[in-house]
């Protein structure tokens, strides 16, 4: 269980998160939706400890992530895997070296074990046989899938997805959605997905939370979100230019 309790984060005078409270159950896929710049990615970075909140607490199975420092925090990140918005592959390394990076640090696997695991993970994301390619030789969709292979290689318990369908065509985006569902089934992981793509949200989510003005203003199953009476939710999920979000 992940508990986000009254988390606040500002950058200079700008309050990005202004008291976020959220519980993510073990094994569920929680999709956090919100406008661009609403602080979704910041929330994800706070979850994994890349950033520290100004106030508040993030608890993962009773462990307060926000209180951890240095090597303790690094050890705690072992439980997380993260798919970055633009994949964030190390551009000086091959695909195989990218996927093996976490394995070398987080596991005791030898070179053969690592090679086998890398091949397995690439096969899982439908990219067998590209171990020797460099990131610049891959398309946007392939990069995301390699990023996903890298995130799942050391079998984390929680996977964080930052805009998994952004910047790729709808067919590739759907393939990524299928992968998120498949990984949840096969690896029984807790997933946190940040997106503003409602098609993806409805497809992968067990529950959806809307982040608006630095707070979670609505949370529920995809059906409950579709039928919400909250005008902010309705404007966002239908992508209307006019409504309370834009004050038109």
């Amino acid at each position: 269980m992940i508990r986000i309790i009254d988390v606040r984060k500002s950058f200079g005078p700008k309050k990005v998160l202004n008291g976020v409270n959220l519980e993510i159950r073990t094994g569920e896929t929680m999709v956090i939706i919100g406008q661009s710049g609403s602080g979704k990615s910041v929330l994800l970075k706070l979850l994994i400890g890349i950033m520290k909140p100004d106030r508040g607490e993030i608890n993962v199975d009773g462990m307060n992530i926000t209180a951890l420092r240095g090597d303790e925090l690094l050890r705690a990140t072992r439980r997380f895997g993260m798919l970055f918005q633009a994949a964030a592959l190390f551009d000086s390394m091959t695909v195989a070296q990218n996927v093996a990076f976490g394995l070398e640090r987080y596991t005791d696997l030898g070179p053969d074990g690592i090679r086998t695991r890398v091949a397995d993970c690439l096969a899982k994301v439908g990219l067998s046989g590209i171990e020797g390619l460099m990131p610049y030789e891959l398309s946007g969709g392939m990069k995301k899938r390699v990023g996903l292979a890298r995130a799942i290689a050391y079998r984390p318990e929680i996977i964080l997805y930052d805009e998994p369908s952004t910047g790729i065509d709808p067919i590739r985006a759907d393939a990524i959605n299928e992968l998120i569902i498949l990984l949840k089934k096969e690896m029984t992981v807790t997933s946190v997905v940040i997106t503003h793509d409602m098609v993806s949200s409805y497809k992968v989510a067990d529950r959806i939370a809307l982040l608006y003005e630095g707070r979670i203003v609505e949370i529920g199953t995809p059906e409950a979100i579709k039928n919400s009476a909250n005008a902010v939710v309705q404007q966002f999920i239908h992508g209307r230019a006019q409504g309370p979000i834009t004050n038109w």
Binding site: K45, I50, L74, A88, L89, F90, D91, F101, G102, A151
Partner: peptide, 18 residues
Amino acid sequence: GTMKITEQVDALFTLGAD
């Protein structure tokens, strides 16, 4: 700097490398 703006530095951290 390129690693920083393309989130590769953050990726290092998530993969256990300070």
